Amino acid sequence: MTHDTRIAAGVIEGFFGRCWTWQNRRELASFLKSRRLSFYLYAPKADKHLRSQWRAPHSSRDWQQLHLTREAYRAAGVDFGVGLSPLDLCSHAGVADTAALDKKLEQLNTLNLDYLALLFDDMRGDMPQLAERQSALANRAADTSNARRIILCPTYYSTDPILEKVFGTAPPNYLEDIGAGLDAAIDIFWTGPKVCSDSYPQQHLREITERLGRKPFLWDNYPVNDGAVRSKHLYLEAPGADRADAAPLVSGIAANPMNQFFASLPALASLGRAVSDEHYEQDTATRETLFSLYPDELANHLIDDIPNLQTLGLDGLSEQQKQLLIERYSSQQHSSPITKEICEWLQGGYKFDPNCLTE
């Protein structure tokens, strides 16, 4: 099997809840480069200045941190982007305020972005002419932004029925209309058959390509763990082999990581292999990646504990099992920062907060 090594594969920090630190984000730049990943998108749900208060500028401190982070990615030779969610512009009242988007994009242009993502996820979608409005906003962003690649995330970014249950019934022909209205150079995010898809069937991707009029850009919700259920698990395994099979059928793959920065690195480290290696195998990639990242003793413990941390999770572990794991990883905190994150997670430090969904 030969894969297109030109595919863009990277990371989108696009989760709810507890964010990474600015230092984490800058450390990621050289890590991505070393693992054959080509971009990072800054789009945490907790950054109100990209979502509910998107019109307001960032604080001077955060704006400085954004510039420093952008420079770290430039120095590493990794593309840098930002995800903006001007959700209220999709409403009837928002049409009169489209110029606010231009002003925000002019601010973002000072970062000299490589990528700009316009994100319309997590909003009500049962409104007339939604596709036409979102396409027009994305086309306008493409005209105003100096980013060389624009990606639109539609409101209905999967065929998962949960989206219509939560956000209302999608307008008829929504995906087809989005694709028809968008400039051909603009990509479209897609999470697969589910919001958090376990696999990406090739037939599904071909059907979505037909509906969108272009290959989808996968927003891969693995290893993300920001939800009520997934927050009780740490996803340490390499991505499934279906990412390798999907690579020729998509325009890119953006992995959405976990709230735990260091615990996210094993899964992210294998993504570059998954989309480019001719003979990618998940178990082999998991083992080799863990041994490449950590001392042998710690790597062996992590491999042994994947059934506990990833499969059983917090609800499946007894209090005695949790305490034994805490003791194991506390004794190895000199080995890697991942051990501190595991202990804090076991002690409830990353408990899901439903309030984060409304911020």
Rank of each mutant, 00 (worst) to 15 (best):
L87C: 11
S158H: 01
S318Y: 02
L312N: 11
S30T: 15
F217S: 04
G83C: 08
L105G: 03
E281N: 14
P223V: 07
P44F: 00
F189I: 01
R206C: 04
E71K: 12
A29D: 09
T144A: 11
G77V: 13
Y350N: 00
V82D: 05
L302F: 06
F120W: 05
I151V: 15
G272Y: 04
V95N: 12
S59E: 13
R230W: 09
Y222T: 15
D102M: 05
L302T: 08
I151F: 03
S91G: 14
L249F: 10
H92V: 15
I150M: 12
M127W: 11
T110C: 03
H58I: 10
N256R: 09
Q107M: 15
I162R: 02
L101F: 00
H92N: 14
E278K: 10
S330W: 04
E13T: 02
A147Q: 03
D62P: 12
G272Q: 02
L130W: 02
R6H: 10
A131E: 06
L218R: 07
Y294G: 11
D296Y: 00
E210N: 11
D304T: 12
L28Y: 06
E106K: 04
A100I: 11
P44A: 05
F167M: 08
M258Y: 00
S38D: 09
S331D: 10
A117C: 15
R206E: 12
A8S: 15
L105H: 01
S318I: 10
A180R: 10
E71D: 14
W63P: 01
L346D: 03
S85N: 10
L50R: 06
A76D: 14
N109F: 02
K322C: 07
Q203I: 08
E27F: 05
I188D: 02
C356K: 03
L309N: 14
S264K: 06
P161R: 13
F262W: 09
D143T: 14
A29R: 08
Q333C: 10
D226E: 04
M127S: 12
Q134C: 13
E344Q: 13
A285R: 01
P193R: 02
D220C: 14
V166D: 08
P86T: 00
I253R: 04
G94M: 11
S158G: 12
V95R: 15
H67V: 07
D305M: 06
Y235T: 07
F31N: 07
T191R: 14
I342W: 00
D79N: 14
F80N: 04
K33F: 08
F80W: 06
D102L: 01
F16C: 14
R25Y: 05
L234Q: 06
P193Y: 01
T311D: 15
G272I: 08
S145D: 08
Q320D: 12
K351R: 13
F262K: 07
H301Y: 08
Y40C: 10
L130R: 05
S52M: 04
G349S: 05
A141W: 01
S251E: 09
D143C: 06
I150K: 03
N139H: 04
I306H: 03
R55K: 15
Y222K: 01
F15R: 00
P337D: 11
H334W: 02
L357D: 01
S199L: 14
V11M: 02
L346G: 02
L84P: 03
Q134N: 11
G313M: 13
F167I: 00
A238V: 08
T209G: 03
A184W: 00
T289D: 06
R18W: 00
D183G: 03
I188S: 07
R25E: 07
D114W: 11
L108M: 02
C343E: 06
A75I: 15
G14L: 11
